[in-house]
Structures are given as structure tokens and as C-alpha cells.
Amino acid sequence: MNITVNWGLLAPILAIQLILMVTALTSLYKADATRGPKWMWVLIIVFGQILGPIIYFVVGRNDRS
């Protein structure tokens, strides 16, 4: 595999993903309680690529507390 990758092109995409991940992790850190254990959500957010943070924001947050 030696696809010539133009990093200038992909950098913004990676940056957006990073922002999403950091936001989700901050929110997770500040939350008192989540649905399910917190370490599980850390794994989902970090390894879930784009979907991870989305799933966390939709399902994981316990807004009522």
C-alpha cells in the first residue's frame, strides 16, 4: 500500500474528527452519570471513528441528571 496521500488535504478531516473526539471526551469527563460505565464510552469514543462520538452524544448522555 503506497497511496500517495496529500496530507494538506486530509489534515482538516483529521482535525474535525479530533475536535469531535475531544468534545465528547470533555462532556464525558464532566458528566455525573452516563448510561453504562464510563470506561466503555471512552473506548467507543476513541475507537469509534466518526460514529463513536455521535453514538455517545445521542445515547450515552444522561441529560436528566
Binding site: L9, L20, T23, A24, R61
Partner: peptide
Amino acid sequence: SYKWIWVPMVFLLLGVMQPVTTYY
């Protein structure tokens, strides 16, 4: 609830991905 960050970000990602994938 961080919606102001994550919803625009997801849309931005969706929007940027398509041209880049087509290009590659």
C-alpha cells in the same frame, strides 16, 4: 449539551468527505 459543537462538526465532516472520496 454540546449540540452546537457536534452537530455542525458532523455535517462538516459529511460535506468534506464526499469530494475527497470522489477525488481519491
